[in-house]
Amino acid sequence: MERDSVKDQADSYVTDDGRTIGPTVMEMKNITLRFGGVEAIKDISFDIREGEIRAIIGPNGAGKSSMLNVISGFYVPQEGEVWYKGAQRPPMKPYQVAQQGIARTFQNIALFEGMSVLDNVMTGRLTQMKSGLLAQSLWKGKAEREEVENREIAEKVIDFLEIQAIRKTPVARLPYGLKKRVELARALAAEPTILLLDEPMAGMNVEEKEDMSRFILDVNDEFGTTIALIEHDMGVVMDLSDRVVVMDYGRKIGDGSPHDVRNNQEVIDAYLGVAHD
């Protein structure tokens, strides 16, 4: 499945497979991130459009995860601006970023091991649950209503990701592949505007990767969720994503459709190595 190069000027356009890609929802402008003397990210700019699947790829240590951490508020870049929904985002804490509708999963699974699958998915709804301590302590009125309403949404996500059978199982007992899926469910339960996936397919076999790819496409298709993902499996990236950012040693070396990126000489050099003479 090859896609044409992106029409940068148009506000929104329709892809070959019939999905509508909207205007820019998030824009990174000249981001530079340093840890002491090490520049993890050097002057990188790119944008994420509404409804698209945006991949960030690059060799190990290229700064991909750091980039994701900048988006989700873990790191505050020394230079550059983050624009979200048409406004510049002031430096904020990760939980404030989450409240703005940005959810993410982690490279190493970060589930709450002591809780059941259902409770884990319900934690994804926490930003939406507003009832006070007193109401909750009595479990009457608003607190109970809110609990049931949010449970319905959580159950929809559980249905969608086909984890109904394990909803009462403690997460600690689940195998790796299912844990990845539960983590996706938790992020999805928040009904995010942008979903950040940090290596959603790391450590999976071919079938699990196919399952996960299908879920990612379905999420994008059915909920219209914008997805930014980091992935090492090139086949997956080229098939899933609408546009790809390629990073190497903290610099951006390519940006465009999978087709463009694949034929970019600098990208080929970064991945395959190049002879220096």
């Binding site: 804490k93 939980y95 409770d119 928040a190």
Partner: peptide, 17 residues
């Protein structure tokens, strides 16, 4: 759930809001 999230993994708790 907020308390248990903090107990089990405080970084992940912060990232979900």
């Amino acid at each position: 759930r907020k308390w248990m999230a903090i107990r089990d993994m405080d970084i992940a708790a912060e990232i979900i809001g």
